[in-house]
Simulated scan of single mutants.
Amino acid sequence: MNIGNIELGSIPLFLAPMEDVTYKSFRYMCKKYGADMMYTEFVSSEALIRDIEKTKRKMTLFEFDRPVGIQIFGHNIESMVEAAKIAEESNPDIIDINFGCPMKKIVNKGAGSGMFQDVPKMIEMTSQIVKAVNKPVTVKTRLGWDENSKVIVEVAEQLQDTGIAALTLHGRTRKQLYTGEADWDWIAKVKNNPRMHIPIIGNGDINGPLKAKECLDKSGVDGLMIGRGAIGRPWIFQEVRHYLETGELLPPPLVPEIVENVKDQLTQSINWKDSPERAVKEMRRHFAKYFPSLNNFRELRIKLLRADEIDEVVILLDEIAERYSDTRVDYTNISLK
């Protein structure tokens, strides 16, 4: 599969752009375990054109990232075009447009999946961005606004006609948010539409190798995107790739192996944030996901989530590794909710 001139191999695995998740340290971990394509956190076009430092910092890229995309969102066409040009200056491999975020604060402004309320504007915005930048432009979106308006087959054709290089589909409507199940049958309808010739990437509910294979077989997509399933489990990319290539499942990781990965990510956070305290705070979302389903773990979990000092965190991690030294963490039935 290619996006423009970027060669990604057969059935590439993509790390989904996620706010407050896909920053440097987490991208590093996912790349370590074989993610083929990375994305930054999504970037507000309005904040970008106002030169907000916190927003610009999200676009800081590293050599380990590549190939990597910067994803932008917004409701104003002129602002989105200008933001795309600014993002291009950071030299990503692609510019990605977010037409998929279902969050109320974004949708109420007409951005993200709120664009399904004005499809002609969505198409015009995409067309102008494609013309404004030299990098390949891709789009990530959903099936439609609600159950009664799944218009993605027609919209996908129109987006393709603007000149985008690839399309990622999350198998839910905006109204679903992240409830219910992703509908890969609709993703298959887009992929199997004879008019479509650009790569189609499928996204939604991939929580392990078996689900990845099921979704791939059902839809025939060119690539798979993994989001929430990678939080606290960056090695999911390795697990999926191994299963797709061999048909064999890798054994679940031992807790001490997980602890070493947590320490690795924490080190990357410290190096990026230049502050152990900020790094610990950044990692809390991941602490809660790295150790699911361990017996009698509640007290240690609470301590880990309340720890403020790096030394305290390391002591707790070492205690977890020792107490559960022979325990493997099976993620098979872990919910993504």
Rank of each mutant, 00 (worst) to 15 (best):
A165H: 10
A166S: 12
L167K: 05
T168L: 03
L169P: 04
L169D: 01
H170Q: 07
G171S: 06
R172E: 05
R174G: 03
R174E: 05
R174Q: 10
R174W: 04
K175H: 08
Q176W: 01
L177T: 13
Y178N: 02
Y178T: 01
Y178D: 01
T179W: 02
E181M: 10
E181K: 14
A182E: 04
A182T: 02
D183A: 06
W184S: 03
W184V: 01
D185C: 11
W186R: 13
W186E: 15
I187N: 02
A188L: 13
A188N: 15
K189E: 15
V190L: 12
N193R: 11
P194G: 10
R195S: 15
R195E: 15
R195Q: 15
R195Y: 15
M196L: 14
M196G: 12
H197I: 14
P199L: 06
I201S: 12
G202E: 11
N203D: 14
N203M: 04
G204Y: 01
G204T: 04
D205C: 00
I206L: 06
N207E: 13
N207K: 10
G208P: 12
P209C: 06
L210W: 09
L210V: 11
K211Q: 13
K211H: 10
K211R: 10
A212W: 09
E214W: 08
E214R: 04
E214I: 03
E214P: 10
C215S: 12
C215W: 07
L216H: 06
L216D: 09
L216I: 08
L216C: 08
D217F: 03
G220S: 01
G220H: 01
V221I: 08
D222I: 00
D222W: 06
D222V: 02
G223R: 00
G223Y: 04
L224G: 10
L224D: 13
M225C: 09
G227H: 02
G227V: 00
R228F: 02
R228Y: 02
G229H: 04
G229Y: 04
A230D: 12
R233G: 07
R233C: 13
P234Y: 01
V240D: 08
V240Y: 07
V240E: 09
R241F: 03
R241E: 04
R241M: 03
H242Y: 10
Y243A: 03
E245N: 11
E245R: 03
E248P: 15
L249N: 09
L249E: 11
